[in-house]
Design a protein around this nucleic acid. Structure first.
Lengths: 135, 135
DNA sequence: ATTATAATTTGTCATTTTGCTAATTGACAA
DNA sequence: TTGTCAATTAGCAAAATGACAAATTATAAT
């Protein structure tokens, strides 16, 4: 019953929905690949993964500096069936699948390098443009 | 897909979980019976029902001043199966079932009368004891 | 018509959630 | 051992959520 709330809350979010959909079609994905797909900050994606893992919906495998996530064997089968019917018809997910194809075609090292660049670029832009700094 | 988020968000709440469980075992329940079960304010329960109805999980039938809710035929079957397995083993739900037996044994009019009394009583208590009034 | 009442809508407040940046951790590499 | 880099944790602001009381609506009864 505790599990019920963990699971439903984990599923009740658009980003996590896209993550689950991506993992259902791709066996294993590492955090930086999901960052590339969702275009969210790495810590945000990491926290989404923690929520999904806390609900027992995904499992992780550490491989050097990378962490690979996959759908857990404990993911309730009936939920999985419903998810397939309900989610994969959506246009947004089809777009994600196409984007993922490109992501998978790029070496993981390159993805991470690009993400680091984007991050420092954002910093530069922010610092030079934003006059309303917070303490 | 829009439906996916409506449905998962509707399910991802403890009170609404108990409401769905109660409706699964009792065909039809009116708002005041659910108020009695959950011991929440009537507007709160009404809102929960609106969320469930917005997700297409329940339907309503108006009967005079009363509104009766029931599980919708559109409630996804796989979700229903999962819900049965996941929720009905919980102690909290078994307690609810026992409480509901008593509630169903009392005429609806009496339930509503008692709830009105409780409400005015709460007002009296609040006004006389609480020195920290808000504007 | 007027009153009473079951339910809904509205407005407020406290809590939770989701996003970010900054700081930290853990593992590889030089 | 020192530096680098992927991922996580910590801390904060904005948005969403769930609770309540008060006001409104809609229906039955007087």
């Amino acid at each position: 019953m505790k599990a019920y709330l963990h699971i439903t809350k984990a599923l009740a979010d658009g980003s996590r929905m896209r993550i689950v959909a991506a993992l259902l079609r791709n066996n294993e994905l590492c955090v930086c690949q999901l960052v590339e797909l969702l275009r969210l900050a790495t810590p945000t994606v990491s926290r989404h993964m923690a929520v999904l893992q806390g609900a027992g919906l995904v499992e992780s495998r550490k491989d050097g500096r990378w962490v690979h996530y996959r759908i857990s064997a404990a993911f309730p089968g009936q939920l999985l069936q419903w998810f397939e019917e309900e989610v994969f018809t959506a246009q947004e997910i089809k777009t994600d699948e196409a984007v993922l194809k490109d992501i998978l075609a790029t070496p993981v090292e390159e993805l991470c390098r690009n993400q680091s660049k984007r991050k420092t670029f954002n910093h530069r832009v922010r610092r030079s443009c934003d006059t309303n700094h917070r303490p």
